[in-house]
Design a protein around this nucleic acid. Sequence first.
DNA 1: AAGGACCGCAACCGCCGCGAG
DNA 2: TCTCGCGGCGGTTGCGGTCCT
Length: 289
Amino acid sequence: MVGSLGVRKGAWTEEEDILLRKCVEKYGEARWYEVPSRAGLNRCRKSCRMRWLNYLKPNIKRGQFSEDEVDLIIRLHKLLGNRQVKMSLSQNYWCWLRWSLIAGRLSGRTANDVKNYWNSNQRKKVISSTDEVRSKPEAKSITRDNIIKPRPWKFRNLFWLGGKSTPLINVGSQHGNDLCKPCYSTVSPPSDINEVLSLWWESSLDDKEINQTINSSCLGSAGSAAAAYLESNESHLVENNEPGGIKTGDVFYEQAGQNCWSDISLDADLWNLINAELDQQQPEKDFIL
DNA sequence: AAGGACCGCAACCGCCGCGAG
DNA sequence: TCTCGCGGCGGTTGCGGTCCT
């Protein structure tokens, strides 16, 4: 099928997949508007991006969702819902449910997969499923150490830093390429979703309680502590993937005059600090799925 | 065996945020 | 400040396979 602009539509052929895969392997996941010409594909940029992210990208897990995955989807959907959720003390900041956020916590699953699964399965039976989950006899123990640590969340308004505008740092010199586009970075609160999840697990899926809790203390002292930690270390969370190894979710900082970065999920000091703050708010305990 | 109903999933569409100029 | 273009996302569509009668 060919669209009105002469661009091919419909199912991808094996030849097209090969061309796209080669192109992304050579040039990376960037500049999607250049991909069709680079790959020699008569496809629009969005179609190429979609095909790569949802089908061709390595490590994509296919097949049936496991019980644990379904459980997590149900719980996250219960938490975030198909509605706006107030996520901060600020009256101005609202966050929509993002399928990608749920998918990000399911290793190898894409947002499209999760969305399709939800639309075709769980929408109809979510109520009965959550009841089953809550009464499951062989419940599994989940602790703060074994839940998937969140990737940073992009915040438009950094209300929790007193409304500072998003800082911009240039790490172009990191790549040995002066023409490199600077990394846009921000001090997004890495603790948000962990704290929300903790509150959510503990609130036993009670909508009223969840909303009250989120509204009142989602970005409490743990978020503030994380912000202070990042500020005191003059570090920032990186939001855009960049060539040369620095990628979304890395913490960028200076040490002994050198620019450095590391994966936020590997920053033990930060996570210890956040968990310590959480522990002060509530006694340590396992969360039961 | 045939055909209609149903379902799952890949793909498309339209909108929005954001940076660049 | 405005416009444009790109990346990204969620909602929706439609094709193809499977099930049911």
